[in-house]
Each structure stands twice: as C-alpha cells, then as structure tokens.
Amino acid sequence: NKFNKELQWATWEIFNLPNLNEEQVKAFIDSLRDDPSQSANLLAEAKKLNDAQA
C-alpha cells in the first residue's frame, strides 16, 4: 500500500531529524497517524522546522 510505505518513510525521517525536540517529534508522528495521506506535507513541515531550529 502506497500510503503505508510513505507513512513508514515519513515516520523514520521525522524520528531522525536532529533539531526537533521530543514533543515536536511526537506531535508530527501523531499527525501522521491521524492522516497518513498527509505524510509528504507533514514531512516537509517537519524538515522546515528542523532547519529553522538548526
């Protein structure tokens, strides 16, 4: 299933962003679980936040 692979990839990527704190990671993962179809958008937002906090 396409969404499942995207969800797994986005989850792994978010867990490995070095500049997000635990609460931010949890919030993004919760959002992914709530709406897996938004995984690409949520990953992009997480990466933006990660870069901003570098």
Rank of each mutant, 00 (worst) to 15 (best):
W9E: 15
D34W: 13
L17M: 13
Q24A: 02
T11S: 09
D34F: 09
N19G: 05
S31I: 10
S39R: 03
A52R: 09
T11H: 04
D30V: 07
S31G: 08
N19Q: 04
D35Q: 08
L17R: 00
E6F: 11
A54Y: 07
D51M: 08
I14M: 03
Q24V: 03
L42D: 01
L17T: 00
N50Y: 01
N1P: 15
D35M: 08
L17Y: 03
D35R: 12
N4I: 12
N4W: 15
Q24K: 01
A44W: 08
D35H: 10
A44M: 15
A46R: 00
N4P: 12
R33M: 15
Q38I: 06
F3M: 14
D51A: 13
Q24P: 00
A44E: 09
N50F: 01
I14N: 01
A54S: 12
N50K: 01
N19L: 04
K2Q: 14
A27T: 12
A40R: 13
D34V: 11
E6Y: 10
D30Y: 07
K26M: 09
E6I: 10
F15D: 09
D30R: 06
L43M: 06
A40P: 09
L49R: 04
K26L: 12
Q38T: 03
A27Q: 12
E6M: 08
N50G: 02
P18Y: 08
Q24Y: 02
K47I: 09
E6W: 10
K5H: 06
S31D: 08
N19T: 03
A10I: 14
K2W: 14
K48W: 09
I29P: 00
N16Y: 04
Q38F: 06
K48E: 08
Q53N: 08
L43T: 05
A10T: 08
E45G: 05
K5G: 09
A54H: 06
E13Y: 14
K48H: 07
P36Q: 04
N41V: 08
N21K: 10
I29G: 02
K5A: 07
E45K: 11
L17P: 00
F15N: 14
L42Y: 07
D35V: 05
K48Q: 11
K48N: 08
P36M: 08
S31E: 11
L42H: 04
A52L: 13
S39Y: 13
Q8L: 13
A44F: 09
L7H: 03
L43P: 00
A46S: 02
E23A: 12
W9L: 13
S39D: 02
L20W: 01
A52P: 03
L49W: 04
R33V: 14
I14E: 03
Q38Y: 04
L42M: 10
N16E: 07
S37W: 06
K47N: 06
N21Y: 10
Q53S: 05
V25Q: 06
S39E: 03
N19K: 03
K26S: 09
L7G: 03
E23H: 13
L32S: 01
N50E: 01
V25F: 03
Q24D: 04
D51T: 09
L43F: 04
S39G: 05
I29Y: 03
A46G: 01
Q53M: 10
Q53E: 04
L17A: 01
D34M: 12
Q24F: 02
F28W: 02
N16Q: 14
I14P: 02
F3Y: 11
P36G: 04
A46E: 00
S39P: 04
Q8F: 12
K48D: 06
A10L: 10
F15Q: 15
E45A: 11
E45T: 09
D30K: 06
N16I: 07
K2P: 13
D51L: 11
A54N: 09
N41S: 14
D35E: 06
P36D: 03
D35F: 07
L49K: 06
Q53L: 11
F3A: 15
K48S: 12
L49V: 08
W9K: 13
L32T: 02
K47E: 04
W12K: 14
A40H: 10
Q8H: 06
L17Q: 03
F15K: 15
Q24S: 02
I29T: 04
K5F: 03
F3P: 15
A44S: 12
A52V: 07
P18T: 12
V25E: 02
S39Q: 07
L7M: 06
K47S: 05
D51K: 12
V25W: 02
A27I: 12
D30Q: 11
Q38E: 07
P18M: 09
D51S: 11
D51I: 07
W9N: 14
K26A: 11
L7S: 04
F28D: 00
I14Y: 02
A40L: 13
F15A: 15
T11F: 14
Q8K: 05
E13I: 12
Q53T: 06
D34H: 09
E13G: 03
A44D: 10
S31H: 11
N1L: 02
E23N: 12
A54T: 11
A54I: 11
E23W: 12
P36Y: 04
W12E: 15
N16A: 10
K48V: 08
F28G: 00
R33P: 01
D35S: 10
N21W: 07
L43D: 00
L20K: 00
D35A: 07
N19V: 01
A10M: 05
L7K: 02
K2A: 15
Q38N: 11
L42A: 04
E45W: 05
A10Q: 04
A27D: 06
A52G: 08
F28P: 00
L20S: 00
E6H: 06
S37T: 09
A54F: 08
A54L: 09
D30H: 11
N1K: 05
W12H: 13
W12F: 13
N4D: 15
E22G: 10
L17G: 00
E45P: 00
S37Q: 08
L43I: 09
A44Y: 12
Q53V: 06
N19W: 14
K48F: 07
P18R: 05
K47L: 06
L17K: 00
E45D: 07
K47W: 05
A46L: 02
Q24R: 01
A52Q: 12
A40D: 08
T11Q: 12
P18G: 11
S31A: 15
L7W: 07
L42T: 10
A40I: 13
A40S: 09
A44G: 07
K47H: 10
V25H: 04
D34N: 09
F28M: 04
R33Y: 15
W12M: 14
L32Q: 01
K26H: 11
L20N: 00
D30T: 10
N4L: 14
N50R: 01
S31Q: 14
W12N: 15
K47F: 06
K2M: 13
L43V: 15
L42G: 01
S31T: 08
E23V: 06
P18A: 08
E45L: 06
K26Y: 08
W9H: 12
V25N: 01
N21I: 06
F15P: 02
E13D: 03
Q24N: 02
N16S: 08
T11E: 15
Q38H: 08
N41Y: 08
W12S: 12
N1Y: 00
S31M: 14
K26E: 10
Q53F: 06
K5R: 04
N19A: 08
E23L: 09
K5V: 06
A10P: 03
A54D: 09
Q38M: 12
A27P: 01
D30F: 06
Q8I: 12
